[in-house]
Design a protein around this nucleic acid. Structure first.
Length: 128
DNA sequence: GCAATGACGTACC
DNA sequence: AGGTACGCCATTG
């Protein structure tokens, strides 16, 4: 596991409820501006080993990248449950919801069992 | 060890 | 505006 990978995991864990980050944004925050695809890889491999709010990671267009036969519809459900609004084309307003982790990130990694989010936990009514 | 694989981003038709 | 071409580089087999 490279330092970049650890930083990516830490950053993803720091995304607060009701906010999102893009693959590219995470890569930039982790110090590798062109590392968006590595973030994808890391999400794939690490979401099994670590508790990660994987549903709060979207692409730079503000859309969910997963297809529906993957967990795309589940991801949208979680985000809706956190109060995030999608427009009619399924786009999230990044200006409003994108999280900036800032310079000081000293969260610790906590290896856990699989990240098995309970849908009921996230099903808060959308605000507004 | 090395080629293939991406839940991407962006530049360029 | 919408497609596609290609660079990116940590992981995987």
């Amino acid at each position: 596991m490279t330092p970049f990978t650890k930083r990516v995991i830490t950053i993803i864990q720091s995304i607060p409820e009701g906010a999102v980050m893009t693959y590219g944004g995470i890569a930039r925050a982790a110090g590798s501006p062109r590392g968006a695809r590595q973030v994808v890889r890391i999400l794939h491999s690490m979401s099994r080993k670590y508790k990660l709010p994987w549903h709060r990671v979207i692409n730079s267009k503000g859309m969910i990248s997963l297809t529906e036969d993957e967990s795309g519809s589940l991801q949208q459900l979680y985000l809706l449950g956190e109060g995030i609004i999608f427009d009619e084309r399924g786009v999230i307003d990044l200006e409003r919801y994108q999280y900036d982790p800032g310079p000081a990130l000293e969260l610790e990694l906590e290896p856990e069992q699989d990240f098995n989010p309970d849908p009921e936990d996230h099903l808060l009514p959308p605000f507004e």
